[in-house]
Simulated assay, not measured.
Amino acid sequence: MTDTPPPPSPAIRTLVIDTATAACSIALIEGGAILAAAHREVGRGHAEQLLPMIAELPDGGRAAHILVDVGPGSFTGLRVGIAAARGLALGWGADVHGYSSLSLIAAAAFAAGQVHDIAVMLEGGHGEVFMQAFAPGPMPLDALASRTPDAAIDALAGRHPVGNGVRWLQQVAPDLVGTPALPNAADALLLPIPLATLPPRPLYGRAPDAKLPGGKLPAAGTVA
């Protein structure tokens, strides 16, 4: 297994794992269709729930390709999902790729009827939100950033806000209209190939509070 295998054929069975946020979400996809899926808002405890959820899928979720949410999101949640994806890929001899939680939410929003540019935002640490703008496609319009609610409101530039970070902005601007959302693994079908072939390593919107061995902190906005 390598970190950058070639993109899989749509006909190949794919297991999708998403534990980057409060949701624990999985899907088994083949031939452009969802064979089975599960989505739970668990808050915490992804490590205890993820593998039993996968085991309940057809064939125990076994697939030739694994797709995992690499962030941004919860430091612990990201590690749980990516570790599971890498471990299963090693055991099954499968390929593994990653995707961004923000691009998945964007893809779902456009599929649900959004026709204009949007700003996707997820709750981050220390009262900030992870934020990135997208055009229909979805196509990223800027780089991932972690912003305070005030700075996020200034950066909206008229775009419709989508994601669970909307509620943090509404604490500052109560009249702000947005669409709350969390990543759902079943929406991975909507991702274009360039957004579904990231390396399976955490993508951080800011330096995490938890330290890696040796006391090192990954740089914000990079993969570790």
Rank of each mutant, 00 (worst) to 15 (best):
T4H: 14
P8K: 08
P8L: 03
P10Y: 07
R13Y: 01
V16E: 01
A22C: 14
A23F: 00
A27L: 10
I34R: 07
L35N: 02
L35G: 03
A37H: 05
E41I: 07
E48F: 00
L50N: 00
P52T: 02
P58T: 01
D59I: 00
R62E: 02
H65R: 12
H65C: 05
L67I: 04
V70L: 07
G71N: 10
G71E: 02
G73A: 04
G73N: 01
T76C: 05
L78Q: 05
R79F: 03
R79Y: 09
G91K: 01
G93M: 13
Y99R: 04
S100V: 09
S103V: 13
M121S: 14
G124C: 06
G125Y: 06
A135S: 13
P136S: 13
D142F: 08
A143L: 03
S146E: 10
A152L: 05
D154A: 14
D154T: 14
A157N: 14
P161L: 13
V166A: 10
V166K: 10
W168S: 09
Q170D: 09
A173V: 15
L176M: 07
P180N: 11
A181F: 11
N184C: 10
L189K: 03
L190K: 12
T197I: 07
P199F: 03
R206H: 11
K211C: 15
L212E: 15
K216E: 14
A224W: 11
A224E: 10
